Amino acid sequence: MSTITHHEVTYADGVKKIHYLATGPEDGPLIFFIHGWPATAITWKRQLDAFASVGFRAIAPDMPGYGQSTARRIADDYCQESIVEGLMALLGDTGRDAAIWVGHDWGSGVVSSVAIQHPETVTALVNICVPYNTIELGWDGFLPLVDRDIYPEDKYPYGQWDYQKAYEEDFEGTIKWFDQDVAGLCSLFSQKPGPRPDPKAAAEAMATVRKVGWLGGLPKPPSAAQLGPPILPPEIFDSFSADMQKTGFWTGSAYYLHHRRNAEYNGPRNHKFTNPALFVHTKWDVTCETKESRLMEPMRENCSNLTEVTIDAAHFVMFEKPAELNAALFRFIVDAVPGQWPGYSDSEYEKTK
Rank of each mutant, 00 (worst) to 15 (best):
V146M: 00
D147Y: 07
R148V: 01
D149H: 14
I150A: 13
I150D: 12
Y151N: 06
P152S: 01
E153H: 10
K155G: 07
Y158L: 03
Y158I: 05
G159A: 03
G159R: 04
G159E: 05
G159W: 05
W161E: 06
Y163A: 02
Q164H: 11
Q164W: 13
K165M: 10
A166N: 12
A166F: 04
A166H: 12
Y167G: 05
Y167W: 14
E169T: 12
D170Y: 06
F171W: 04
G173Q: 09
T174M: 13
T174Y: 12
W177P: 09
F178S: 10
F178I: 09
D179E: 08
Q180G: 05
D181I: 07
V182A: 09
V182Q: 04
V182M: 08
A183I: 07
A183G: 14
L185N: 08
C186K: 04
C186P: 04
F189G: 14
F189A: 11
S190P: 01
Q191D: 03
K192Q: 15
P193R: 11
P193T: 13
P193W: 13
P193D: 09
G194M: 01
R196P: 00
R196F: 12
P197D: 05
P197S: 11
D198P: 08
D198V: 15
A201H: 13
A203N: 08
E204N: 14
E204T: 15
M206D: 14
A207Y: 09
T208H: 08
R210I: 03
K211S: 14
K211N: 13
V212S: 09
W214A: 11
W214C: 10
G216S: 03
G217T: 08
G217M: 09
P219I: 14
P221S: 14
P222K: 10
P222Y: 13
A225K: 15
Q226M: 13
Q226Y: 09
Q226E: 15
G228Y: 06
G228E: 08
P229A: 13
P230W: 11
I231A: 15
L232V: 03
L232F: 02
L232W: 02
L232M: 06
P234H: 13
E235M: 10
I236M: 08
I236W: 07
D238Y: 01
S239A: 15
F240M: 07
F240W: 09
F240Q: 07
S241H: 05
A242R: 12
D243N: 11
D243P: 01
M244C: 11
K246P: 00
T247I: 02
F249L: 10
W250A: 15
W250Q: 13
G252Q: 04
G252K: 02
G252C: 01
S253W: 06
Y255K: 13
Y256E: 03
Y256I: 07
L257G: 03
L257K: 03
H258G: 03
H259M: 09
R260N: 10
R260S: 12
R261G: 00
R261N: 01
Y265F: 15
N266P: 04
N266I: 07
G267C: 07
G267D: 06
G267Q: 02
G267W: 01
P268M: 01
R269C: 02
R269F: 02
R269D: 00
N270I: 03
T274G: 00
P276R: 01
A277D: 02
L278F: 06
F279M: 06
V280L: 00
V280S: 05
H281V: 05
K283F: 12
